[in-house]
Design a protein around this nucleic acid. Structure first.
Length: 759
DNA sequence: CACCGTTAAGTTTTT
DNA sequence: CTTAACGGTG
């Protein structure tokens, strides 16, 4: 077991207070995970609690994975039955074994946001309302709101604050729910509310779980919504050994339903709670901690902690005033290069921005200086079209009622079943109160009974072929044939592979590569899962976006990390750049006139960003920034003003003509800042001019990956023969080239896929 | 259908 | 400016 000696007194208390309700408020970098891991190993080793009786719930798969790994290192016993899992995966598993109570079947499908949106759209369509009159997201937001609060149809809400049946969208909610039920599907929110419903309607079921889980632990508690809180409450009713760990100052997902009141009001629900505050920070310099504390202390919606550290004083924070967004990006590139030369590896540096759009300028500048970087977040692997198509086939195999999956792939590749035919089938299914699959199967088997649906012989025969294929696949799945085998059969026998192969552009190459990666993922799953079923794989895919198979989260040597502040939570870097620290950018314009509650969340975001830095923090802003096609002068972020002046140095970038812009300011955005007002120039006494932008800054400081096939190189393609590189773009995995072949043909390739070699 | 031009809007995204 | 989504046309 991890020794208690390595813990500080509060951490030790957090481990030893095993019985009764405990709330641990763990500041940034306070050794939270270490404490949690020790607590669990202590329960297992010293208190002889069986792993079976323990439940640890986290929010992200990443957190669950990390905790599980660390625990398995610490304890000798087999922790196979120890449940460290996400809320959603926990609920999904529970529901699969208790599905019959709620009239679900255990092979239910989990719908993601895209699929929920598709349902909302079809509900609108059904009523003849265009998506311009009502945005489907409005409906989804309403539905999501209800579910986040723990509402399920017919529930008698505690506190009586359920929805009104007269609500504008209540009808949509009911219809949406019955659509899901018809498809034997649940959405993310529904996973949680279904368990609440199960527990409330069947106390004997609840009781089984209440008895089993003697100790329950919840990580990232600040991110739980009310539904999750109620779930925990029921689960812990009997044993009352509930330990929640969180930091109200890092609650940055309220817009996703996280309810900060779960922390603030915990004591009202559990009056005998022991509250412990982990306030010693082991990550950052004194300067950074003090600055971040001063900012966050402006918030009122908090319990209050005071972070401190024994770490060295450290450097002052650099607040860097740039002329415009381009200069800001240029500064990042030059400064990171300078740090690198001075001995800081690139993987220790990170750039945090408020919104994804800001990444582009910075990427451009880094590319210009040939600095390798990695953008964390972005397009999800499983959201790509070809992946969704293939997954839809597999989902249909598992759950025949999944009409959404069916309608997605019924005509991919083209089978002559276009929108009109599909529409007819859907109407018929609706009239017969059955699923799309069911009706198609009936038409194929008993064609004579369905002459009223006008379908051509060609369509009928391709439907028949389709039904045969899916049924064969189902048969394979029932006979426990490996998912990867089933996948390969779908890919080829559906005609999807041939259909893709038909075009030869380089986008297709990427798609084929993605399909290979999907196979890879399935194979990997087969190796790691105890019982590698197809349905298990599909669940993992839906509930674990981090299974972006390129391991996006892994920090690679020689690469700077670029990410949103949201994406930065939980990470740390020796050198961090918080960029775009301007009013209307950070804080976001949405929050600037969105009231105090919204502003407090922005402040928490800023706090999260600051506390990622260990040694040196840079905060940059631009006088003028290109936004929505025009230059806006927003002025520095109010959060900069909240940092005591003694903790930062105000540095102004020089090297530009002051009159590049005319003096037309953006009305309404000016605030108190005027970049041309001399009287405001020395608002900060310690202002100094330090960084000098070099206009001819094109000399690369270090070229990591030169293009493999530079312009002018002679190459040989295994298919097209000899040619010359006409154009080359990017390097490493992103390198793209345009080649002119001997026969005069020009083609573009992604180097990582194309079979080309230097001649 | 697939393509193209128009239009409107423009945060954050653990599951 | 940029992008996504819609609706009209070939």
């Amino acid at each position: 077991m991890k020794s208690l000696d390595s813990l500080n007194p509060v951490q030790k208390e957090a481990v030893l207070n095993t019985d009764g309700p405990v709330m641990i408020l763990a500041g940034a970098g306070s050794g939270k995970t270490k404490t949690l891991v020790t607590r669990i190993t202590y329960l297992l080793d010293a208190k002889n609690v069986s792993p079976h009786q323990l439940l640890a719930l986290t929010f992200s798969n990443k957190a669950a994975k990390e905790m599980r790994e660390r625990i398995s290192h610490e304890v000798a016993m087999d922790i196979g039955s120890l449940q460290i899992t996400t809320f959603h995966a926990f609920c999904a598993k529970l529901l699969r074994s208790e599905a019959n109570y709620l009239g679900l079947s255990r092979n239910f499908t989990i719908y993601d946001e895209g699929e929920s949106k598709a349902i909302a759209k079809s509900l609108l369509e059904r009523r003849g309302i265009s998506t311009k009159e009502i945005n489907p997201y409005e409906i989804l937001a309403y539905i999501d709101g209800l579910k986040n609060n723990g509402y399920y149809p017919g529930r008698d809400m505690p506190g009586g604050d359920g929805p009104e049946t007269t609500d504008m969208f209540f009808g949509y909610f009911e219809e949406y729910e019955s659509e899901l039920h018809r498809a034997n599907a649940l959405d993310f929110g529904g996973l949680i509310t279904a368990v609440i419903q199960l527990f409330e309607k069947f106390p004997e079921v609840a009781s089984r779980y209440q008895n089993r889980y003697v100790y329950v632990l919840v990580d990232e508690y600040q991110d739980t919504n009310r539904a999750q809180f109620e779930l925990i409450k029921i689960l812990c009713e009997k044993r009352r050994n509930i330990c929640v760990v969180g930091d109200e100052d890092q609650s940055i997902y309220s817009w996703r339903g996280a309810d900060i009141r779960n922390i603030l009001d915990f004591e009202k629900v559990f009056p005998d709670v022991k509250v412990l505050k982990l306030e010693q920070n082991y990550r950052s310099s004194k300067t950074i901690i003090e600055a971040a504390s001063c900012v966050i202390e402006k918030n009122t919606l908090r319990k209050g902690k005071h972070m401190w550290t024994e770490n060295p004083e450290g450097d002052a924070i650099d607040v860097v005033e740039c002329f415009n967004d381009k200069d800001e990006a240029e500064f990042i590139a030059q400064e990171t290069a300078r740090l690198y030369k001075a001995g800081t590896p690139y993987k220790e540096m990170a750039v945090f921005y408020r919104s994804n759009a800001q990444a582009r300028q910075i990427e451009d500048a880094l590319r210009k200086y040939k600095i390798q970087y990695r953008v964390i977040g972005g397009v999800k692997f499983y959201e790509r079209k070809e992946i969704k198509d293939m997954l839809s086939y597999l989902r249909l195999v598992i759950n025949s009622k999944d009409s959404l999956a069916l309608s997605r792939i019924i005509n991919v590749p083209a089978r002559g079943v276009g929108a009109t035919s599909l529409r007819k089938l859907e109407v018929e299914a609706m009239n017969n109160n059955t699923s799309l699959w069911d009706i198609i199967e009936k038409i194929v088997d008993h064609s004579a009974d369905y002459t009223h649906i006008k379908l051509s012989a060609k369509i009928k025969s391709s439907l028949s072929e389709f039904v045969t294929l899916i049924n064969e696949l189902r048969h394979l799945d029932q006979n426990k044939i490996k998912p990867s085998t089933i996948y390969e059969k779908v890919l080829h026998e559906s005609g999807y592979y041939a259909f893709l192969k038909a075009n030869k552009d380089y986008e297709t190459l990427a798609r084929l590569e993605n399909l290979d990666e999907l196979l890879n993922a399935i194979t990997q799953f087969e190796e790691s899962a105890e019982v590698p079923t197809l349905s298990g794989f599909l669940e993992t895919i839906t509930l674990d976006s981090s299974s972006d198979f390129d391991e996006a989260a892994k920090l690679i040597d020689g690469e700077i990390s670029l990410m949103t502040v949201h994406g930065a939570k939980g990470l740390e870097f020796t050198h961090a750049f918080v960029v775009g620290a301007e009013e209307n950018v950070f804080p976001s314009y949405r929050s600037v006139d969105g009231g105090e509650i919204a502003m407090e969340e922005e402040r928490r975001l800023f706090y999260v960003a600051m506390t990622r830095a260990m040694i040196k923090l840079y905060i940059t802003f631009a006088q003028g920034r290109m936004l929505f096609g025009q230059v806006k002068f927003n002025g520095p972020s109010r959060f900069i003003d909240e940092i005591p002046e003694k903790l930062f140095t105000w540095k102004k970038l020089k090297g530009h003509q002051e009159d590049r812009y005319d003096h037309s300011f953006t009305p309404g955005y000016q605030k108190n800042f005027d970049p041309y007002d001399q009287s405001q120039e020395s608002h900060y006494d310690n202002e100094e001019v330090v960084y000098q932008i070099k206009e001819t800054a094109s000399a690369p400081l270090k070229s990591f990956h030169q293009p493999k096939f530079p312009k002018g190189a002679s190459v040989v393609h295994s298919l097209y023969g000899a040619g010359k590189v006409e154009d080359s773009e990017g390097s490493g995995a992103d390198e793209k080239v345009q080649i002119k072949f001997a026969d005069g043909a020009r083609k573009k390739f992604m180097v990582k896929f194309a079979p080309i070699v230097l001649a």
